[in-house]
Nucleic acid binder design. Structure first.
Lengths: 341, 341
DNA sequence: CTGAAAGCGCTTACAG
DNA sequence: CTGAAAGCGCTTACAG
């Protein structure tokens, strides 16, 4: 940072108003001490002085003294999604009247695992909501909760321990999606995967569902059918096009994202391949576009993009006078059988 | 926040290691004072003590003392977009090796105008990149820059003043998009608008382009053709469908977002209406999907989703030893005439 | 009703 | 090479 112009502090305001910094603090924060509030005249004088010297609160100093930052975070794996957008919106709606600031912490694939929880660990925020697939060490969460920060974690395997967990049963739902393809007789099912998750397949709900469901039906993995393109619309389009043009094309696609699934529909259409007759497609995530395209996208996900219950619980914990026990919120994913597969 | 367990501080570490807090600070921060660095033995002892007491740095305390937070923000109008995702990615890539934290500050329509710049005003962050259409008071930016925070502002009318501005000439480009429709002979052109911007039309680049281009061609505004659905895929789809079914349907659509433009393509297709023959469609934003759908979307926007120059300039300013003069980065939008209109 | 003073948890010249 | 001490800008019991 280039050198800063000296900023006005409460001391400057106090001097100008001819009062103590205590009085300035009480007036500007709107809080009342144990005694009677400042007189109207004092109040007025402080406000004017603050205005005259161009005083602005220093949030960092307040945070250190109050031992809370009044900032909460939403952590999500980048890129953003209708999910993260909706949750941000609902968090902000709840945070605004409480004078809390909501920040988003997008986790990019390059982020080192240890650094992801740093903002929590170093107390930059009072609490956080963690969306699924954030590459964090679940073991560390209990420690963070114990030190007084509020946590709501979307994670199917995590056990609540001073924090709340949202169970979505994603594995079950994803398996139902692939089973649907298998039951319809498909044997060559391509998988559009998250690039990052393919590096660490055991952690990937989507890849595991795919692998296990196929295995149950006696089908092995064909590397040619697994492409790491779920996060890029362009790459998904290209990859599906070339799969469909190959000598031995798939008859179905299971995509780790709805976006890539939609690209698959487009790619098929351009080649004159009918969906679902010649190519069945199942996505994951249930984003709103899926419902308005035609054929409507068959997918797996939350039936409603609504986090009222989760947000309420998070704020309850944040505002609790004493530590609350961890709870589980069940919000299971469903197979939404529509028209594409 | 529920009451916190007492956290270990550097004082605890110092006591345990039998050294002063100064030594602890030097060891843990990796910084060196004016003298010689601590001996290997001291170093070792401090590290072990820190580990034993479970010490974690308090970022807020460090920030207050150092007078910088080492946090930078990307502010963007919610919902997120390929733009904001890409910029976050590039900012993080640059921030990581510098040990800076990047946060996203999505601005929702409900945010009061005065509160949007609060994180800057109150010094929660050392600097920020502001994407277009953030509802901020441009007048206030110079003051923030003067107090030492780094600012890079995407804004076509802003004049640099201790901060950098990116000029994209969005108005010119948007007008070119509508002109294209007018020149092709269209007279009934629907506009899919941002809901929020319709409340304050003078601020809306897209609405102004639409209104002014039409006026130039002697066409008045028809309220039936202006619908505030650009931010919702579902609403866009519904609105376009009902427009196309109306007694006097539009022959073209100018959409404030590519997303809604794509929905318009889908809606038309479902009704058996040809794009662009029977309905010409022009979007705004140039998101990647536009290129892979068919017909390929005609749109207006940045030719490349790349912010290398902007990010470099931002970090140059952030790291400058003294205040840098404001500059203008030109990165003009273009009309990308493809197939949909 | 108002002020003097301590302290939040760090960092950093300075003295030794 | 290490330690004692001041201070970043606030807030808040406490004394008057």
């Amino acid at each position: 940072m280039p050198p800063a112009m000296r900023r006005a502090t409460q001391r400057d305001v106090a001097e100008r108003a001819g009062v103590s910094t205590a009085t300035v603090s009480y007036v500007l924060s709107g809080r009342s001490g144990p005694g009677k509030p400042p007189t109207a005249a004092t109040h007025e004088r402080v406000l004017r002085a603050a205005d005259e010297v161009g005083y602005e609160l220093n949030h960092i100093a307040r945070s250190l003294r109050r031992q809370r930052s009044d900032v909460i975070a939403l952590m999500y794996p980048a890129p953003a999604s209708p999910w993260s957008d909706r949750l941000i919106e609902q968090l902000q709606a709840a945070a605004d009247p409480r004078h809390l600031t909501v920040i988003a912490l997008p986790v990019t694939p390059t982020s080192a695992e240890h650094s992801v929880l740093r903002p929590l660990r170093e107390r930059m925020v009072d609490g956080a909501v963690l969306l699924p697939d954030c590459p964090v060490d679940v073991e560390e969460l209990a420690g963070i909760a114990q030190r007084g920060q509020s946590l709501l974690v979307f994670h199917d395997e995590a056990v609540p321990d001073g924090f709340d967990v949202v169970h979505q049963d994603r594995l079950t739902a994803c398996r139902a999606g692939i089973e649907r393809l298998l039951v319809a007789g498909h044997r060559r099912i391509a998988h559009l995967a998250h690039e990052r998750e393919l590096e660490n397949p055991e952690r990937s709900v989507k890849f595991r569902s795919y692998r296990d469901a196929l295995a149950d039906h006696g089908i092995g993995l064909d590397p040619d059918l697994i492409v790491p393109v779920a996060d890029s619309r362009q790459e998904a389009h290209t990859a599906v096009t070339s799969l469909l043009r190959s000598a031995n094309p798939p008859t179905a696609v299971f995509s780790a994202t709805d976006r890539a699934a939609i690209d698959a529909v487009w790619a098929a259409r351009e080649l004159g391949i009918d969906v679902p007759e010649q190519l069945a497609i199942v996505g994951v995530g249930n984003i709103p576009e899926g419902e308005i395209m035609s054929p409507r996208l068959t997918t797996v996900g939350l039936p409603e993009l609504d986090f009222t219950v989760e947000v309420e619980r998070f704020f309850t914990r944040l505002e609790a006078a004493e530590p609350l026990p961890g709870t589980v919120i069940r919000s299971p994913w469903h197979l939404l059988a529509r028209d594409s597969g």
